[in-house]
Design a protein around this nucleic acid. Structure first.
Length: 183
DNA sequence: AAACGAGGTTCCT
DNA sequence: AGGAACCTCGTTT
């Protein structure tokens, strides 16, 4: 990954988006000229809700329906064979200081491994901020790319997920399969 | 097993 | 400013 950053709110930013099928349902891919900015999931027919859910995060940004531009990113994200250091996926993290820090921590979780909310809070030097971490993870705009699904509760339980626990389990399962298949 | 309060940060009124 | 919400945690009923 080669994370870029942008101030929260997304002011002055133009975001292209498109809908694509994915292993976990319908996916909404959002991108800026600097790389992938957002990734959301849902079911066909929910496009409007998915889009609203994302635009709420960056109310100041401009949005353009541009399938041609987002298609290559969509293809790349769901093919683990293309995840290699020499061809990093360019992403842009738009959020507050704290959120960006949390997301960067998530990127450090290796494939197939899991972490916990309190664990991340510790890494940020705020051992008691587990709940804040949960809130920040929940606002993660790049579900799946930023491995928010690899974060579990303290006891190893799957706790909650913005786009549904079922989808979270599906991602973990798919990932486990990728590890075996690409080893 | 369920209920409860503390905790950090963000969002809305 | 004040209060509620959040993909939580640890402790207490």
């Amino acid at each position: 990954m080669s994370p870029g950053e942008w101030k929260a709110g997304g002011e002055g930013l133009t975001i292209s988006y498109g809908f694509f099928p994915s292993p976990f349902g319908y996916a909404l891919v959002m991108a800026t000229d600097r790389g992938l900015a957002g990734l959301a999931f849902g079911d066909p027919g929910e496009e409007k809700a998915m889009l609203a859910d994302m635009t709420r995060r960056w109310p100041k940004a401009a949005y353009v329906d541009d399938k041609a531009r987002t298609a290559p990113l969509a293809a790349r994200v769901f093919d683990s064979r293309l995840w290699r250091p020499d061809r990093p996926l360019r992403i842009v993290m738009i959020g507050t200081d704290f959120e960006v820090r949390v997301w960067e921590t998530l990127l450090g979780i290796p494939m197939g491994k899991c972490s916990t909310y309190s664990d991340i809070a510790n890494k940020l030097g705020k051992p008691k901020a587990a709940r804040a971490v949960g809130a920040a993870v929940g606002k993660n705009p790049m579900s799946f790319v930023v491995p928010c699904h690899r974060v579990l509760g303290r006891s190893g339980d799957i706790t909650g997920y913005h786009w549904g626990l079922t989808r979270k389990r599906a991602m973990l399962g798919w990932e486990a399969g990728q590890v075996v298949g690409t080893a």
